[in-house]
Design a protein around this nucleic acid. Structure first.
Lengths: 206, 206
DNA sequence: GTATCCTTCAAACAGTCGTTTGACAGAGTG
DNA sequence: CACTCTGTCAAACGACTGTTTGAAGGATAC
C-alpha cells in the first residue's frame, strides 16, 4: 500500500530533487530522502544502486525533456528566415524558464542544476556535457549566423556568460528580494524577460 | 614545532578554503581540513568554536579585503567627471578578478563564494548581505547616475545579472575548456575582459 | 621559585553516513 | 499445488561525522 499515486522510484526522485536543492548532494542524506518520500531506506540502493546513480537519474529525468524542448524551439527558429536574435535567445531561455515553473519540482531542479555547476565534479561535468553538449553546439551555429561580426571563440565566451546568468537567475540566487506579493513563479518570469533583453544587447556588442 | 611559517589559525583557514571549494561545506570534513593544514583535529573547535564559525571566517578573511578594494576603486571613479560605464564596471569586477588571481588561494575562494550562493542558506546569505550590502548599494548609486534611462528596479535586475555572470565566470564554471597552454589565471583575465564588454552593452540596452 | 595562561595533543563521545543482508509478502507462471 | 521474480522491510555493518575531554607542554608573570 503506497502513500501516494506515484511509484517508489518516482517518489524517491522527487524527494531527492527537493532535498538536493536545499541541502546539496553531500548535505542531503538518503535517510532524509527516503523519509520524505515515505519509502524504506533500502529502496534507494535497490532501485538505483547507489547515491551517485540516484543523483544522475535526478538529472536525466529533467534534462532529457529540457534538451528536447530547446531542440524543438531552435528548429522552429532555424526555419524562419526573419528570426531575430531575441527569438534564438528565447529558444534557449524559455524552456529553462518553463521547466523552472513546472508544478512538480521544476524550480527545485534549477537549483540542483546550479549546484552541479558549483560542484565542479568531473564525473558530473562529463555527464552534463554528454547530455547538454550537442544541443549547445547547435545553438552556437545559429547564433553564429545571426552575429557574423563575432568569431567563434568570442561567441563561445559570450554564450558562456549568458548560460551563467541564466543559471544564476533561474536558481533564484540573486540578491533581489522578492517583494511580498510576488510569487516565485512571476519572479522567475520577470527574470527571464530582463535576461533576454540584457543578453541580446550583450551579444550584439561590437 | 610547526610545519609551516603560518600560524595554526591561518593554516586551517587556507586548507578549509581549498577543501570547501573542492568538496563543499558539507562534503569537506574537519578531519580532511586539519590533516591538510597539518594541525590537530581539536584545533578547529579551539580556535573557531565550530565548523560553521570556521566557514564564516573563511569568508570574512577575503571579503573584508574585497570590499575595501571595491570601495577604493569606486571612490576613484566617483571623483572623475569623465568616468565611463566601463570604468564603473571595472571597479566592480577587477577587484574580484585580482582576488581570484591571488597566489594564496584566491581562486579557490571564488569557488567557495559561488558555493555560498548555491547553498541558499539563510544564515550565510544574511552574513554576506551584511558584509556585501552597503558596497553594492553604493555601486547602484553610481550606475544610476550613468544610466539615467533605467529606473531603480530595472537597474537592480541588470546588476543582479552582472553579479551572476561574474560569480559564474570567476568560479570558472563555464563549459569553455581551457586550451592546453592557457593558465587558469590568463583564462580568468580573458573572462573578465569579455565580461566587462558584455555587461556594458547589456546595461546600456534601452 | 610557583602560578597562570595559551596552545596542542591523543582519545573518546554519541550520532549519522551509505550500503548490505536476510526474511517476508505478493504477484505471475508452469 | 510449487516455483520464481519483484519489491519492501527492519536491522545491522563498519566507516566516518562534529564536538568534547583531560592531560601535557611551553611561555609569561609575579
Amino acid at each position: 500500500m503506497n502513500a501516494s499515486q506515484f511509484s517508489t522510484k518516482q517518489r524517491i526522485l522527487g524527494a531527492a530533487e527537493v532535498l538536493f536543492a536545499r541541502y546539496g548532494f553531500a548535505g542531503a542524506s538518503l535517510r532524509q530522502v527516503t523519509a520524505a518520500a515515505n519509502v524504506n531506506l533500502a529502496a534507494v540502493n535497490y532501485h538505483f544502486g547507489s547515491k551517485e546513480n540516484l543523483i544522475e537519474e535526478v538529472f536525466r529525468r529533467r534534462l532529457d525533456d529540457l534538451n528536447a524542448r530547446r531542440q524543438t524551439a531552435l528548429t522552429k527558429v532555424e526555419k524562419r528566415a526573419d528570426a531575430t536574435l531575441e527569438d534564438a535567445l528565447d529558444a534557449f531561455i524559455r524552456p529553462a524558464l518553463q521547466l523552472s515553473l513546472d508544478r512538480s519540482g521544476g524550480g527545485a531542479f534549477m537549483r540542483v542544476l546550479a549546484r552541479a555547476y558549483a560542484e565542479h565534479d568531473d564525473r558530473l561535468r562529463r555527464f552534463l556535457s554528454d547530455n547538454y553538449g550537442h544541443v549547445l553546439r547547435e545553438f552556437v551555429v545559429v547564433f553564429h549566423h545571426m552575429l557574423p561580426h563575432l568569431d567563434k571563440e568570442e561567441l563561445y565566451w559570450r554564450l558562456d556568460i549568458v548560460a551563467g546568468a541564466l543559471t544564476y537567475a533561474m536558481a533564484d540566487f540573486g540578491v533581489i528580494k522578492r517583494k511580498g506579493g510576488t510569487s516565485e513563479q512571476s519572479h522567475r518570469e520577470r527574470a527571464a524577460e530582463h535576461l533576454v533583453r540584457f543578453a541580446a544587447a550583450g551579444l550584439r556588442a561590437p
